[in-house]
């Protein structure tokens, strides 16, 4: 064994992650977005989006970097504040979807038999319903607003992860270390949560970063369709506004919102990829 292998898996993964330049840039971008979201939530230090500061539809200039909207509000400030909605939707839906996905997937994979049958039926059923239809019906039932968006995206987001974890746990439960745990009298709970789960954690992390950006995109689509956030700046509503404004040559609202979304989704994708590479135990030490 070489000296390198004495590093823990996590320390090794981190050092490999930061060596990848693009991953590092992406990580910084994500952190900046998160920082902005936190500032917007506590309402500190960010430009004001609510008041009309100039006449309508001013083109981008020195004072208003992305021009003004229909009511003379600063589009750049709206983009910035839109970050809050996007990031909070990403975070909250991940917090809902990931635990459900991990738990259900792990149970199905570990116990198999009729439990697996039932859970697999649910997974297949959920994934066969077109996502956007399900989202629309959930927001219609629960009324509109941020909470509905969280729940709607949260309870549809667990399916993919559950399927992945299920397969992985099935593989692991036949491994020698699990048999060893059985041999020394470990119960189901211990084997599943203390022994197997840490070995699939990397999948959870990678999935979180993908779940996060899917949620952001879905929020934008829902708001675009008028089913999402109401009364607060959201990139989706901005794009909806822009749809008609384009005819009079007002492109800045569309450009601002799309670019902000593009950047964060791209960053999450690159980060997800890099995480997958750096957390793969087979690539350890390379």
């Amino acid at each position: 064994m070489s000296a390198q292998d004495t590093k823990s898996l996590w320390a090794d993964a981190f050092s490999r992650l930061v060596r990848d330049r693009w991953a590092l840039i992406s990580l910084v971008i994500v952190l900046v977005y998160a920082g902005i979201a936190v500032l917007a939530t506590i309402g500190w230090g960010l430009p004001d989006w609510k008041t009309s500061q100039a006449s309508e539809y001013l083109a981008p200039n020195g004072q208003f970097w992305l021009g003004t909207d229909l009511f003379g509000r600063d589009v750049f400030a709206k983009v910035i504040h839109g970050t809050k909605i996007a990031m909070s939707v990403g975070l909250v839906t991940s917090l809902i979807a990931i635990p459900i996905g991990v738990f259900i997937g792990a149970i199905a994979g570990y116990f198999g038999g009729w439990i697996d049958d039932i859970i697999s039926w649910f997974i297949t059923t959920f994934s066969s319903i077109p996502n956007i239809m399900l989202l629309i019906s959930i927001t219609l039932i629960m009324g509109k607003g941020l909470v509905s968006v969280y729940l709607a995206l949260g309870i549809t987001g667990w399916v993919g992860l559950a399927r992945l974890i299920r397969g992985e746990v099935m593989k692991h439960k036949e491994r020698e270390y699990v048999h060893a745990a059985s041999a020394i009298g470990g119960g189901h709970f211990r084997k599943l949560f203390i022994h197997i789960l840490p070995n699939v954690t990397h999948l959870v992390i990678i999935n979180t970063s993908l779940q996060f950006q899917t949620a952001i995109k879905s929020e934008v689509i829902l708001s675009y369709l008028g089913l999402g956030v109401q009364g607060e700046p959201s990139w989706g509503t901005m794009i909806d506004d822009a749809r008609q404004e384009l005819a009079r040559g007002v492109w800045w609202q569309l450009a601002g919102a799309t670019f902000a979304m593009f950047l964060v989704v791209l960053a999450f994708n690159i980060l997800g990829d890099a995480l997958r590479d750096s957390l793969d135990p087979k690539l350890k030490g390379k």
Partner: peptide
């Protein structure tokens, strides 16, 4: 839910 109706609502709220 049309864009213009929503904008009119925003204007009213403002």
């Amino acid at each position: 839910g049309s864009t213009v109706s929503r904008q009119q609502g925003e204007f009213f709220a403002k």
